[in-house]
Nucleic acid binder design. Sequence first.
DNA 1: GTCTATAAGTAGATAGAC
DNA 2: GTCTATCTACTTATAGAC
Lengths: 220, 220
Amino acid sequence: MRLTPGDLQNRPDTRDRILDVAERMFAQQGFDLTSLRALTAGADVNLAAVHYHFGSKERLFEAVLVRLVEPVNAERLARLDAAGAQGAPALEAIIEAFVAPPLHAVADARRADVARVLMGRVMSSPDEQMRSLLLKLFGSVLDRFIPAFAHALPHLSREEVLWRFFFMIGVLVQTMSCGHHLRSVSGGSCDPARVEDAIPRIVQFVAAGMRAPAPAEVPR
Amino acid sequence: MRLTPGDLQNRPDTRDRILDVAERMFAQQGFDLTSLRALTAGADVNLAAVHYHFGSKERLFEAVLVRLVEPVNAERLARLDAAGAQGAPALEAIIEAFVAPPLHAVADARRADVARVLMGRVMSSPDEQMRSLLLKLFGSVLDRFIPAFAHALPHLSREEVLWRFFFMIGVLVQTMSCGHHLRSVSGGSCDPARVEDAIPRIVQFVAAGMRAPAPAEVPR
DNA sequence: GTCTATAAGTAGATAGAC
DNA sequence: GTCTATCTACTTATAGAC
């Protein structure tokens, strides 16, 4: 496909170098402030190579996103499989299978910046434009995790499971994308970049929230 | 100041019309896709008026943000005061004082789009650029709510309170900015735009998460 | 596959008249 | 305060040689 059959090249090929530099520059300066001129100069490739390999700046962005997300999702599914190897997995194990892989993936500051910028861009793009991309990226993960949660939370209706799954995503995204604010407000004593601190706290908070009684049972 | 002393004008003045149209166009198309030319044409004002009143496109964005956030924060503080009128407020009341005002503010779809785009832009901007803005916007709210939570959660250290406050913000931001995804995944049966559905669910989930035992007490 | 050269259009910002 | 006219810079994208 895109690999040259020869063995003369021992540096990453053009396409990968573009992706590497795009990831770094999008993270440092944001999408719109990163010109393809600066990007291709930094990658030591020609400006036209971007259009040859990706078609447009927008599709380059999507390729960067896909390359980051796919291994994370693969590890999520692997952990869910492992947790469920002997009977239905415990609630805490499901939560950890979902949140730990992305948190590990953004453990170093550079990748955290990447994730923050990319998620911000996905969030601030028009609905319809991002819907299909998100579904393509996360559809299979949702298909596996939502039933797992539903099974672990028999006191909740399907709707309530979805609400709480949605809340969990909020906790995760916040931790991945705005951890520097918590570090700043706490004077450094709370640091979501320390994954070993963040993961158990998220698991504990979310598990307690998910185990709360169903709304119908709540006296109002 | 900016108000004409005369009474001849009965439409909003130039500055407000720019803010109105900027809010709408930033929400619909995002910040970078909204040119000042299109914006000023839509507001029926001259291109140069933006620079006269705001100085730059970036400062116009900040003015839009401030105008949206300030009344929300004022209502948060008013609700917290009301909840604490007779002794220390209950945990649920503090959470509701924090989350209900912004959720009501984005109850109609147009303002939800505004909030999503603006938050996405804040998130995807470089750290240092947004830090002072966020502190200016939310500093006084943090100063009041964090002690209130600490008082309502005596089993938690200051650090644990901050972690869970941070998680709550994640739940809130997710609900405000990505509610359309939950609506879509649930086939319409879960809709965060129905504030009366969303608020009690958030309060319940977050209160349970906050009441979870402190990490030191958790057997591992 | 990679390059040069350039097309074709847009942007934010400003000077200075009124 | 508001306008016209313009400056300066930069953008994505492409045609076509190699």
